[in-house]
């Protein structure tokens, strides 16, 4: 039987630094998947995940063994992702912030640098439509959804990690799936259009 998370933490805190590798091995997939869905870039996700494990190591003595280790680790991953995204947003203008005009506040209309859905599909067919649809979800829906599916956490663990009541977590995951379904339908319709357009030209 392999050691529990708590037993490994105890050993690491008692001076067996090398045993931390067992925890990294155990959770690397989940953490990288989670951060990847938050950051939308593989290389950034790998770098940030390393930071997460490093932070968890230095803060290990503040971990309370009566709580699940995953929830604690994901809270660190979540804070690191949010900090990083915030840091990046600070250097640019927020696209979500409304613009004040004479006619009142309105949405900022910005042309995206990223390739549009049509060209994305044509340039890189392997790119998953689902991933794109998820990246378009609002944070409050994307986070629990990603924890559920990319990090394979239980509802209880998500509730611990996000410090939200269990009922709220359930509602958000179900709403997220609804929103995702409609995002997907829209994206697939666009892809169909692009495909028929490409055939026609």
């Amino acid at each position: 039987m392999s050691a529990t998370d708590q037993e490994i933490v105890e050993a690491v805190l008692a001076g067996e630094q090398h045993r931390y590798a067992e925890l990294v091995q155990r959770y690397q997939g989940k953490i990288v998947s989670y951060v990847m869905r938050m950051m939308n870039n593989y290389d950034d996700a790998v770098d940030l995940s390393q930071e997460v494990f490093l932070k968890a190591y230095t803060a290990l003595d503040s971990y309370r063994p009566q709580y699940p280790f995953t929830a604690w680790l994901f809270r660190i991953a979540r804070n690191a992702s949010i900090d990083e995204l915030r840091r990046r947003r600070l250097t640019t203008v927020s696209l979500d912030a409304p613009v004040s005009t004479e006619e009142g506040e309105m949405h900022r209309d910005v042309e995206s640098d990223a390739p549009g859905p049509e060209s994305t599909y044509l340039e890189d067919e392997a790119r998953s439509t689902v991933e794109q649809a998820i990246s378009e979800l609002p944070d409050k829906y994307r986070e629990p959804l990603v924890l559920r599916h990319a990090a394979e956490m239980s509802y209880e663990e998500i509730s611990e990690a996000l410090e939200l009541p269990l009922g709220t977590v359930k509602t958000r995951i179900f709403r997220a799936r609804e929103a995702l379904r409609s995002n997907l339908e829209r994206l697939e319709a666009l892809q169909m259009q692009a495909a028929s357009g490409a055939e026609g030209s």
């Binding site: 590798a21 990294v24 091995q25 690397q28 997939g29 989940k30 990288v32 998947s33 990847m36 869905r37 593989y42 996700a45 790998v46 995940s49 390393q50 494990f53 490093l54 689902v130 991933e131 998820i134 959804l145 990603v146 559920r148 599916h149 990319a150 990090a151 394979e152 799936r177 995702l180």
Partner: peptide, 17 residues
């Protein structure tokens, strides 16, 4: 959606950490 979990860290991830 569950297939989202299939992001694989690089082979040297544990060693790097």
């Amino acid at each position: 959606l569950d297939r989202l979990a299939e992001v694989t860290p690089p082979d040297d991830f544990v060693n790097a950490v």
